[in-house]
Simulated scan of single mutants.
Amino acid sequence: MIRVVLADDEPLTRAGIRTVLGAEPEFDVVAEAGDGHGAVELVQAHRPDVVLLDIMMPRLDGLSAAAEIHRTVPDTGVIMLTTFSEDEHIARAFDGGASGFLLKSGDPRELFAGIRAVAGGAAYLSPKIAQWAIRRLGGDRMSSAVRARELVNGLTTREREVLALVGSGLPNAEIGRRLHVVEGTVKVFVSAILRRLQVPNRVQAAIIAYEAGLVERD
């Protein structure tokens, strides 16, 4: 069972997400909040596997809530719920403690996949968010497509395989199963990949995987 805290200031949005998650027996929405401050308090009280945070909320915005949750309850994975109209906030979020980024208007299957991935310790980007990041952050914050391919070409064949699976949102345990290696070996590969790609986290490594063409785009 994956325990989830849901935070959004729109009751109808919360009700919709709760209904969608309720259709899958593996998810349990243990608490809901209508503002960022309440989200932090609920996460600290319930210690869920994942918290879903709207970016724009009263009292404390989602980005600030994410940073506080990451600081005080680091074992809880943070997924930001976004719209493209909030692109400047999405850019900020890439430097925070969030591990996942999903569109509110996205397919429920992406919501399921994102929660599973982040609960398992992986990063997850909605494919449309990843493509947005490539377009909007490429000039300033991430490598260009050419630079991404150059960086990826510097990896070993096995490292490229691992990076492609990281970009697909798979946790280390699942990557290990697919590649028939132990989880500890995957962690070593991921650490080496981050160092070689010159990025601080799996989210930005996933963007490079998309940009370099290692992950299929919708």
Rank of each mutant, 00 (worst) to 15 (best):
V4G: 09
V5E: 03
D8M: 06
L12C: 01
A15H: 09
G16Y: 03
R18Y: 06
G22C: 11
A23R: 15
P25E: 14
V30C: 08
A31M: 02
A33M: 05
D35T: 08
D35P: 03
G36E: 02
G38E: 14
A39K: 04
V40W: 01
E41A: 12
Q44P: 00
A45N: 10
R47W: 00
P48R: 08
D49N: 14
V50Y: 09
L52R: 01
D54V: 10
G62V: 05
S64I: 00
A67G: 12
I69L: 08
H70Y: 09
D75F: 02
L81T: 13
T83E: 12
A91H: 08
R92H: 11
G96H: 08
A98W: 07
F101W: 02
K104F: 11
R109C: 00
R109N: 11
E110P: 00
L111I: 08
G114S: 10
A117E: 07
A122T: 08
L125W: 02
I129R: 03
W132R: 13
W132D: 04
D140H: 06
S144T: 15
V146T: 13
V146Y: 12
R147F: 00
V152D: 01
N153S: 14
R158G: 02
R160T: 04
L163F: 06
G167F: 00
I175D: 02
R178C: 05
R178F: 02
V181Q: 11
E183T: 15
T185Q: 14
V186R: 05
F189Y: 15
S191G: 15
L194E: 06
L194Q: 10
N201Q: 05
N201K: 07
Q204G: 01
I207G: 05
I207T: 12
I207D: 02
E211F: 01
L214E: 05
R217I: 14
R217N: 00
